[in-house]
Structures are given as C-alpha cells and as structure tokens.
Design a protein around this nucleic acid. Structure first.
Length: 368
DNA sequence: CATACGTGGCT
DNA sequence: TAGCCAAGTAT
C-alpha cells in the first residue's frame, strides 16, 4: 500500500471500533480482537440475503433461516420448496435456488466446511466477486478487495472519480485493493460498508462527521453528492396479464401451481395465470382462463419489478371439484409455508377482498 | 458490456 | 408520486 494511504485504514478502523453497527450476523470489533470469529455459514447466509436488499428487510429472514437450519448441512438437507417458502417475500429468488445449491455443494464437495479463499468461494453458485471477497475477508481474514455499492460510493467520492458506473468498476476495485490493510481486512470491509450506510450516504452525506473527510477529494470540493456518476437508465415498459384464483368452498383452499419455466419467479407458487404481455397487445380478460369456471372479475393488481411494471387482472371462481390442471389445493393454514412471491400474495388478497356477488362485468365463458 | 432478476422504504 | 436506492450474480 502506498504510504499516503495507510492513514485511511487507520482512521476508518478507529471510527469503526466506536461506531460499528450491531447486527445479528456480525462479531463486534471488540470481540473480534479477542479472537472470536463469525461462523462462515452465518457470514455467507447474511451476505447472500443482503445482495441488493436492505438490512432492515434481511433481519427477520436471517433469524428464521438460522433458527430452522442452524448449520449448512441442515440447509443442504432441506427440500428446495421449503427453502423457497422461507425466502418468499425477500425477492431475487435465484438467490434462494443458488443458496440451496451452494449448501449442497459445500456439504458434498467440501465436507460441510466452506472453502477459505475468495478464489475458491467464487466458484460456488450465487457467490460472485463481491460475496467471495466479503466472506474471505470477514470469515477468513483474507485481505481481499470488497467492493459493493457502498464502497463504490465511498471510493468514487474519495478520489472524485468522474467515470460513470459501471465503466469505473475496474478502477474502483484497484483503488479499494490499495486501501485495504493486511491487518483486520474483515473489519475494514465492514467499516467501509458502515461508513457508506450511515455517513457517506447517497443523498445528503454527513461529511462534517466523517472520519476520513481530510482524505476525501469530493468533500474538499464540496461535491460529494455528485458521485458516483451513473449511466442513465432505460425507461421501464408496462406489461399486463391475468391471474385466476380458484377456491374450494369447503375449506377456503386456493388452487396453486409451481412456476417451472426459467425466468421470473422460477420455482415459486402462483394461482394459474396468463403470460405477461406488452400492454399494447391489449385484451386479456376471463377468456384467457386456464379452465372453464364462473370467473368473476375482482379488480387489478399493480406491481413494479426492476425492469417492467405489471398490471394483473384478477378473477375468482368457486370450484366444486378439482380443476383439470396441474397444481394443488393450498388450505388457509398452509398459506404461510407456501413459496408465494409478494406479487402473488397481492393477487390472493385482491381475490379474497372482492365481494362474492355479483359478477362485476359478466364475461362470456368461451374457455375450453 | 448489457440485461434479467424482487421488494420495500424513502424523498 | 414516480423515481431512486439497498452488502450483486448469472448469462
């Protein structure tokens, strides 16, 4: 490390010693100094959950997962639907599928012990550049360059990097590697993320109380908020479709199926529905039902995904017997364990909140 | 390098 | 409110 960068890590770590956030998956810098190490399983699990996800949202899920599956072998032994069921609501469901696959590989190929280098961790499903470096640094003291969105923000401000993201990534990684100390690399990584989360925030950063302000070029120039520079995003298109909620009068069960096709919400549960088409394609309606029934329109559900906005028409019908389709009845008491993404939770609420009679707009039944 | 991939909170 | 943002990865 260049001599003029050493004070950065020292100042940051001194600040971290006093201001580290207390988090369920974290070992405090004081305990860490006493030789206490975080369990790699807990570090890994928290890092996967925290990908593009807020600390506040993760806490409850981390508690549920560690209570139900205390060790990686427990998770590896679980059926995938159970894992998806616990993950439901957290989003980015490929993470849950990869989490399970990773647990199985660690159990089968590594005897239940996570590999200890970033390079080896990087080969596991769901573990990329950031997560491999974070686990290696936090759990195994490897001085890896840990670069997440917080670090990108901190580093682009430190050096007033004008190159827009993602073009600037390589430069940011090299700068982070130079800043990272040989000692306490895990605390350093967590300190950078805490700094980004609490002081060096995207908007209205608290430069006046920042422990590294003397070393920050953007702050000196009074333009911290100008970084990182980002490439403008494309507008999100709108799509529409329909969902059909069949209920069983005897116990209020709803008919669900599994989304098997690769793509959105793969592996998750849903009431049967149409594909999601460009809004301009028009007509959905009860005619699109997967099987004939007395479908009643219940209103629409709007939901925003990262790359498109969706408007779903919701229909409901009571069924005497089983529908001629793949799926299963989910009684009310089993609802909580279902792998229902938030969108589908909204659909069920919409269907069940709608009055039973009469049909809002009588739609012709032209279904097969 | 660009795009697909969820969700909830905040401004 | 519409947009932005949060401890990214896979392809």
């Amino acid at each position: 490390m260049p001599a003029d960068l050493r004070p950065f890590a020292d100042h940051l770590l001194a600040w971290y010693d006093r201001h580290a956030r207390v988090l369920p998956w974290r070992v405090s810098p004081q305990d860490r100094a006493r030789g206490i190490r975080p369990a790699p399983y807990r570090v890994w699990l928290s890092e996967i959950m925290l990908q593009q996800t807020t600390v506040a949202a993760v806490k409850a899920y981390f508690a549920k997962f560690t209570a139900r599956w205390p060790h990686v072998a427990d998770l590896a032994a679980a059926p995938q639907p159970a894992v998806l069921g616990e993950w439901a609501g957290l989003g980015y469901y490929a993470r849950a599928r990869n989490l399970h696959a990773c647990a199985i590989r660690v159990s089968e190929e590594f005897g239940g012990a996570f590999p200890q280098t970033a390079a080896a961790l990087r080969t596991l499903p769901g573990i990329g550049d950031y997560t491999s470096a974070a686990i290696a640094a936090i759990a195994f003291d490897e001085p890896a360059a840990v670069v997440d969105g917080n670090v990108e923000r901190v580093v682009t401000r430190l050096f007033s990097i004008e190159t827009p993201l993602p073009q600037a990534r390589k430069d940011i990684r090299l700068r982070t590697a130079e800043l990272t100390p040989q000692e306490r690399p895990g605390d350093f990584a967590q300190a950078m993320m805490d700094l980004g989360a609490t002081i060096c925030t995207p908007k209205r950063p608290s430069c006046m109380v920042c422990p590294v302000r003397p070393m920050c070029r953007a702050s000196a120039e009074g333009r911290a908020e100008d970084f990182p520079v980002k490439k403008p995003k494309a507008a999100v298109p709108e799509r529409k479709g329909a969902a059909f909620v069949a209920t069983r009068p005897a116990d209020g069960a709803v008919w669900l199926r599994r989304r098997d096709a690769p793509g959105m919400l793969q592996g998750m549960s849903e009431p049967p529905g149409t594909g999601w088409h460009a809004k301009a394609d028009g007509a959905t309606g009860a005619n699109a039902a997967p099987f004939a029934a007395d479908w009643r329109f219940c209103g629409t559900v709007a939901h925003s995904f990262t790359h498109f906005r969706l408007e779903l028409e919701v229909y409901r019908a009571e069924l005497a017997g089983d529908p001629p389709a793949e799926g299963w009845w989910c009684p009310p008491e089993a609802r909580g364990a279902e792998a229902l993404p938030t969108l589908m939770q909204k659909v069920l609420v919409r269907a069940e909140a709608s009055p039973p009679e009469p049909a809002a707009t009588p739609k012709r039944r032209l279904n097969r």
